[in-house]
């Protein structure tokens, strides 16, 4: 089985592309304002290249030493696979939907919907638990932010 290209290659390339795009934008800046960005972006693109090259190396290593024991590179580093990041991505989509709902439904309605949705996504089946959580968070936020601190919360079009 042939392994795919290591993720670092993509990360590095993305870094280089971002640097180039932003670098191009700095050409229209006044001299003083452009100075620091050019230095930082140059550094960023160099790191991008180094990571790309490192990624190519890792790809090769992974392909050649297929039969051998996998290399322990770094405990913090994992090879991303679709199945692993699927659920976290679904979760951030739910959060994104919540944020969009906030500007339509206002804080309390959107938050209640979000908590119910998120806990169901988390396969919590006890409605008692879900509603208790919704109730307590809404109450807590209401008491602390609205009553006590007088902090405005996001208002929606409807509420």
């Amino acid at each position: 089985m042939r392994r795919a290209v290591h993720q670092d290659v993509f990360i590095g390339i993305v870094m280089v592309i971002i640097s180039v795009l932003l670098y191009a934008k700095s050409s229209t800046m006044p001299e003083g304002a452009a100075q620091f960005p050019t230095i930082i972006l140059t550094l960023f693109s160099i790191f991008g290249l180094v990571i790309t090259i490192g990624g190519v190396g890792k790809t090769r290593a992974a392909n050649s030493k297929q039969a051998e024991e996998p290399k322990i590179a770094d405990s913090r580093e994992e090879v991303l696979s679709f199945s692993k990041i699927k659920m976290p991505f679904v979760s951030i989509l739910i959060v994104a939907a919540y944020v969009i709902l906030l500007s339509v439904l206002g804080f309390f309605v959107a938050t209640s919907i979000f908590i119910i949705g998120f806990m169901m996504f988390y396969r919590v089946r006890s409605w008692k638990k879900i509603f208790l959580t919704v109730f307590c968070i809404d109450l807590f936020v209401y008491l602390l932010f609205i009553i006590q601190l007088n902090v405005p919360l996001p208002k929606g079009l409807l509420f």
Binding site: V95, I115, R123, L153
Partner: peptide
Amino acid sequence: SVLAPIIVVFSVVGSYAINNNVFDI
């Protein structure tokens, strides 16, 4: 399953409250 939504809600409130700006969320 309970803590995660609570953290998200507070993250949203906190990001908003710092400048009263939805953009920050």
